[in-house]
C-alpha cells in the first residue's frame, strides 16, 4: 500500500479533528462492519460553513480524506460544499490507491449527511437541495458504487 505524501501528511497531522459543541449540522456515515465511520460537525451561518470538525474510525485513507474534505468545505457556501465530489477530494490528496477510493466517497457522503441534517432541523425538505431525503437513502444509492457490499454481508 503506497500512499502519497499528502495522504500521509493529512493522516499524521489531520486538520479539523474534534466536535463542535453548538453545531447546527451533524452527519454520520459508514458503519463498523465496513471498517470506517465518519462523523462530521458543522456550524453554518448565513449559508456559509463557518466551522467544521470531524471524527473518523477508519484506515489511513479514511482519516486523510476526512481531513482534506473538511479543509475544502470550510468557509465555503452550502452550494459550494454540495459541489464537492469524491474525486476532487482524492485529487487534492494526489490520488488514492484504487482499493481506497471508496474512502473518499465516505467523506463526500458525510458532508451531504450533515447538510441533510441541517435542513431537517429547520423543517426544510433536503431532497430538492441535497438530492436525498435521508442518509439511509444516500448510502443505499451509493452501496453499489463505492464497494460497501461488505456491509450487507456483515
Amino acid at each position: 500500500m503506497m500512499y502519497s505524501e499528502k495522504v500521509m501528511d493529512h493522516f499524521m497531522s489531520p486538520r479539523n479533528v474534534g466536535e463542535i459543541a453548538d453545531a447546527n449540522a451533524i452527519g454520520e456515515v459508514g458503519n463498523p462492519t465496513c471498517g470506517d465511520i465518519m462523523r462530521i460537525y458543522m456550524k453554518i451561518e448565513n449559508g456559509v460553513i463557518q466551522d467544521v470538525k470531524f471524527k473518523t474510525f477508519g484506515c489511513g485513507a479514511a482519516v486523510a480524506t476526512s481531513s482534506m474534505a473538511t479543509e475544502m468545505v470550510k468557509g465555503k457556501t452550502i452550494a459550494e460544499a454540495l459541489q464537492l465530489s469524491n474525486k476532487a477530494v482524492a485529487d487534492a490528496l494526489d490520488g488514492l490507491p484504487p482499493v481506497k477510493l471508496h474512502c473518499s466517497v465516505l467523506a463526500e457522503d458525510a458532508i451531504k449527511a450533515a447538510l441533510i441534517d441541517y435542513y431537517k432541523r429547520q423543517g426544510i425538505d433536503p431532497k430538492p437541495i441535497v438530492g436525498y431525503d435521508s442518509v439511509e437513502e444516500m448510502e443505499c444509492c451509493h452501496g453499489h458504487d463505492h464497494g460497501h457490499e461488505g456491509c450487507q454481508n456483515g
Partner: peptide
C-alpha cells in the same frame, strides 16, 4: 477497540 488496524499500523510504522 474503537480504533482501526491500518491506522494503528501506520502510526506504529511512523
Amino acid at each position: 477497540k474503537f480504533v482501526e488496524g491500518e491506522s494503528l499500523l501506520m502510526m506504529l510504522d511512523a
